[in-house]
């Protein structure tokens, strides 16, 4: 008799909660890179400006923000030059929102291909995170240009916290991934969430100190803002590079723990959904 160990593949109705086949994901690593390559090279194919579009969007957004929030609404930036203040918020927020919304689209957006061929479904969100990281890096160059411009004029005082940058990027990516996994799994059944997502991300931006510093929030509301894990990420980033913000180690730790839990819950739900979603999508 064959023992169960002799089989390479065993398909059963129920899987364990966290039973993700990391080995399988590793076997398909080439697919991940090819997906990333596809995302990058097809985004701006047949456009005149090509990859320059990666810069156009944050620059235009920055100009509008400077005009609306800075000049018209006159929201404080804690004496940080407005262009620098807004561009740092924009690129960080962009990375989070694209990770979140693209991951959340995993099942509904790829139903066609998922219905034909099997490969580890996690490859798709992982490739989205990676290709967006590349876009983030390109936009970060833009940030650095503005950053060094103002650094020369001694308008800002960066701190040693800059070393935390990889951690901040990791939190943003993983939090976007985790939330996206939860939403993409639930959307296969309850399409209502799609509508919630669309304006939810927008509203969340206003609940995060992207276009204003946390210090402008009255003391009695600060607690609620600090519940948002992204608050600590953005504030740490601004403290590190601009020298103005509310950095707290406990806050950052809270963000890390929150992110880890989100990822675990996301993977569990995703894992459960990926087996049968073709029947409901």
């Amino acid at each position: 008799m064959n023992k169960d160990e002799d089989w390479d593949i065993i398909l059963k109705p129920k899987r364990n909660l966290l039973d993700i086949n990391l080995k399988q994901i590793y076997q398909y690593r080439d697919l991940l890179f090819l997906f990333v390559k596809r995302d990058i090279i097809t985004t701006y194919k047949q456009t005149i400006l090509g990859p320059i579009w990666f810069f156009v969007q944050p620059i235009l957004t920055m100009v509008i923000y400077v005009f609306i929030f800075g000049k018209v609404a006159k929201i404080s930036t804690d004496d940080i030059p407005q262009p620098l203040f807004y561009i740092s918020g924009i690129i960080m927020w962009n990375y989070f929102s694209s990770c979140f919304s693209l991951t959340a689209n995993t099942f509904t957006g790829n139903a066609g291909i998922f219905g034909k061929v099997f490969f580890p479904r996690l490859i798709v969100p992982l490739s989205q995170i990676t290709s967006n990281l590349i876009k983030f890096c390109i936009q970060f160059i833009l940030f650095l240009i503005v950053f060094f411009y103002y650094l020369n004029s001694n308008a800002i005082t960066p701190s040693y916290l800059i070393v935390l940058l990889p951690v901040l990027i990791l939190i943003i990516a993983v939090l976007g991934l985790g939330l996206g996994l939860i939403f993409s799994s639930l959307t296969t059944k309850y399409k209502d969430l799609k509508f919630l997502m669309q304006f939810g991300i927008q509203l969340l931006m206003y609940a995060t100190p992207v276009i204003y510093p946390l210090s402008t929030i009255p003391a009695q509301y600060q607690f609620w803002f600090k519940l948002n894990p992204l608050t600590h990420v953005i504030e740490t980033f601004k403290t590190a590079f601009l020298g103005s913000g509310q950095f707290s180690l406990t806050g950052l730790l809270y963000s890390c723990i929150f992110t880890t839990f989100t990822l675990i819950i996301g993977v569990i739900i995703f894992n459960k959904t990926e087996q049968n979603f073709m029947d409901t999508v």
């Binding site: 064959n2 002799d6 593949i9 065993i10 398909l11 059963k12 109705p13 899987r15 099997f118 087996q275």
Partner: peptide, 14 residues
């Protein structure tokens, strides 16, 4: 081909 999971039973393959 692992596109959807069975309701009961098992598939074993080498």
């Amino acid at each position: 081909s692992q596109i959807t999971a069975p309701t009961t039973g098992a598939i074993k393959a080498k």
